[in-house]
Design a protein around this nucleic acid. Structure first.
Lengths: 196, 196
DNA sequence: GCCCTTGTTGATCACTTGGTCAATATGCGA
DNA sequence: TCGCATATTGACCAAGTGATCAACAAGGGC
């Protein structure tokens, strides 16, 4: 109970002031307990931050392995586009958590422990695109002759993560519909294309 | 002279320990001067960091308006792909500066001044893709009927920035050739496609 | 030689931080 | 009711921070 309250307070402080603003005293004040209690339950501030990260990762799209109900389109290309659209559309609702995620991301550049956790989560996210990628390649073996599912996953992940950056930094300017329509136009094939 | 030395030392410290490791004493030690001199030239640590950002931004691909010599391909699509490839290929050589860039990026979430500078630089970068995007739309008005140059610029920027994230976080795993080949396969049209 | 601007030092201050710890409260089984 | 583990407090400490400032050095025009 108290533990969860402190962890929740930690998230509140972090969302408001960034990870740099997370001090034992700030969290304790936010949770309305004494500063000593933070150390009683979490031993150290670093450890508190790691536990907050463990809470955060499964709740942030970019790092979650759960992508929601599988789309029902038959065409693998449309299925993949649908999943991308779903993910990108969810980004704005996650702004606070994404800000925090990127804050941890930078922390991970210096902290091997945090880096490992973020990498694993990101790998899981990338891997979630693999089945769709394989289906796509299988459906168009000619077009995607020199393409691997890993390559597809990388490209898709790069795009979604890039969108996340835009959404967090420039939410007003980034037009999701426009970007998705552009992406669709870029990858779509002419309707009745005659190959060779 | 001393000023530049301190700024350079600031970059060295920041590249080694991150922006969080930039303290007046650390910079002074690195530059082999007394801590007081840092304040003599830069008034405050915050201001020193802002000046380092001003030095950094024009030297980081994601935020630079200079994209190198214009590619010579005739086809706008190939021109755009060539520019993207050029940018992405340069990312690994910029890892240290990109790390710093993302560190500032997170700082910008809380500091309006830094945020403004980063936004402007990112806008310039996005804008650099507009002419290429316009040429592409003009060359294929049918295919890109519902696409704007802004939308194209957004999508391209998202992709490159996403690649930058991958390069910084996972340089060993991210295969640039594979990603570029995948991207090319995604956007290429069948050679002799018959429209309607 | 003198003087005055500029550069340079490091001791020093006020403040914040993570973390410890003795003291105390609380709940609960026996 | 007692006893004891658990929970909780806040004063306290050492370490590190940004910033100030009196003192001193350098150098060059007169």
């Amino acid at each position: 109970m108290r533990r969860e309250a402190i962890l929740r307070a930690c998230f509140t402080v972090a969302a408001r002031e960034g990870l740099g603003g997370v001090t034992a005293r700030a969290v304790a004040t936010e949770a309305d307990v004494s500063s000593g209690l933070v150390f009683f339950y979490f031993a150290s501030v670093d450890n508190l931050l790691v536990e907050l990260l463990d809470w955060l990762l499964p709740r942030t799209i970019i790092s979650s392995q759960f992508i929601g109900p599988p789309p029902t389109h038959a065409e693998p290309g449309e299925r993949l586009m649908s999943v991308i659209r779903q993910d990108v559309e969810r980004l704005p609702r996650q702004r606070a958590r994404l800000e925090l995620f990127f804050d941890y991301w930078v922390l991970g550049l210096r902290d091997p422990n945090i880096r490992r956790k973020i990498r694993r989560a990101a790998d899981r996210y990338r891997a979630s695109f693999r089945p769709l990628g394989e289906a796509l390649i299988e459906a168009h073996p000619h077009r995607y002759a020199d393409v691997s599912a890993e390559g597809l996953a990388d490209v898709v992940a790069s795009f979604v993560e890039g969108c996340a950056l835009q959404v967090v930094m420039h939410p007003a300017q980034f037009d999701i519909e426009r970007s998705m329509a552009t992406l669709a136009a870029l990858v779509r094939q002419p309707q009745h294309a005659a190959i060779h």
